[in-house]
């Protein structure tokens, strides 16, 4: 910690960060103001009236606890599955040689272009025939399957800076491809794996389309709160509450895990020198 950062850097970052949270302050202010105040503009703090109405209404009208639990269950399972399987795929594509390697890699990565509604109708039919509707796996499976499009690429991208001498050493020591992966590669991929985890968590948590169509009785938080706005009553104040309630959990997750995420990736520096 010898390096001293010039003060202006902190000031610049601080100013940008403050600018960046203006819309978030807008969301928070909106959730506490009366509708006519919102119509005037939430930033007229001196004239606007404050109220807890929107919070009370969301609290009393929507069974938040159950949906929080469903959201947590679905998101956690989907996240863990992605964190377990995507690195394996990335490793396989990066180091192993097998038929159709490049073709399948291109297909997987390009799947990111597929819009979700393309997936929805065929899957809806399939789940229906299999009796999987209203089952959380109907949502988790596509979450994980669709995540490979970016998660494999993300991990593979970090593998490109992975020191080859480590792999070589493991091979000379007699490690097979699978033990090379579990013993050498995996422990050094903590940071990109956590990056995958955080992204997957955020996306699954905020996803609306799949759970909306595939779940019925126990729905996720986003589905529950999607019905706040009617066709002709946007109820922006309650939507703001919903946005805050929905955003809190991923933010906490990020806070807790950002340490794992920033530390641990020392390997590429090792390889570079």
């Amino acid at each position: 910690m010898v390096y001293r950062a010039p003060r202006w850097i902190i000031i610049v970052v601080g100013i940008i960060a403050c600018l960046w949270v203006v819309p978030i302050i807008g969301i928070i202010a909106t959730s506490f103001q009366t509708p006519e105040s919102i119509a005037r503009g939430w930033w007229h703090f001196s004239q606007n009236q404050l109220t807890l109405n929107a919070w009370k209404k969301v609290w009393s009208d929507y069974p938040l606890a159950n949906s929080l639990w469903v959201s947590t269950k679905v998101t956690l399972l989907a996240t863990v599955l992605t964190m377990l399987t995507a690195p394996a795929a990335a490793y396989v594509f990066h180091y192993l040689r097998f038929p159709l390697r490049r073709t399948s890699l291109i297909i997987i990565i390009n799947a990111f272009v597929l819009p979700q509604q393309v997936v929805i109708i065929p899957l809806f039919r399939l789940w229906r025939e299999m009796g999987m509707l209203d089952n959380i796996w109907a949502v988790i499976i596509p979450y994980v399957g669709l995540s490979y499009a970016w998660s494999v690429f993300l991990v593979k991208s970090f593998l490109e800076d992975f020191p080859n001498d480590l792999i070589e050493a493991a091979r000379i020591d007699g490690c097979g491809p699978i033990s090379t992966f579990t013993r050498v590669v995996l422990p050094n991929l903590i940071s990109p794996i956590f990056a995958c985890g955080i992204l997957q968590f955020l996306w699954c948590w905020n996803s609306l389309l799949l759970p909306m169509l595939f779940l019925r009785n126990d729905v996720t938080l986003t589905v529950l709160l999607a019905r706040i706005s009617g066709t002709y009553d946007p109820n922006i104040d309650q939507q703001a509450v919903a946005a805050i309630v929905t955003a809190i959990v991923p933010l906490l997750v990020f806070l807790i895990f950002q340490r794992q995420f920033a530390v641990g990736n020392r390997v590429s520096s090792g390889g570079k020198e």
Partner: peptide
């Protein structure tokens, strides 16, 4: 290598096939 690739890729191929290739 192809055997290992197969073993490690199986879950990925299954989930990906079901939720992407089939709809595609």
């Amino acid at each position: 290598q192809p055997m290992a690739a197969f073993a490690l890729l199986t879950p990925v191929v299954l989930l990906f096939g079901l939720s992407v290739i089939y709809p595609l």
